[in-house]
Amino acid sequence: MREHLLAERDVTLLDLLDRILDKGVIISGDITISVANVDLIYLGLRLLLTSVDNLEAMRAGGPTLRAASEQPFHALPSEVDQSSALAQRPSSAAQQPHRRACADAAEARDRS
């Protein structure tokens, strides 16, 4: 019984870690966050990931290059929960400039 309680506490602690270190209001910019270093890499990777995926979508599109580039974000990685609007919102801002860049790239390819 005692062991069972210990296990419950450990499980609770790990659930807490998952939340308190990873979620919640992030206030980077105004303040220092203890994991700021990695937050930067995090964001960078998110952009990289989107761009690689877009590249794939554009290539896969072949003749329908323009169509693919108009909606490049249908090609998000399969792990993304498409049904969850909340889950996606935080990254959309970061993707905006990118969307433009990709559209430009596609246009350049079209012209050439």
């Binding site: 308190i20 270190l21 919640g24 209001v25 992030i26 206030i27 105004d30 303040i31 966050i33």
Partner: peptide, 23 residues
């Protein structure tokens, strides 16, 4: 309550005021 992620530090009260104003 909007919980803040663990480990968030602000420089001083002025930074706090600015944060509350901007967001």
């Amino acid at each position: 309550v909007l919980p803040v992620r663990y480990g968030a530090l602000l420089a001083d009260e002025a930074a706090l005021t600015m944060l509350l104003r901007e967001r």
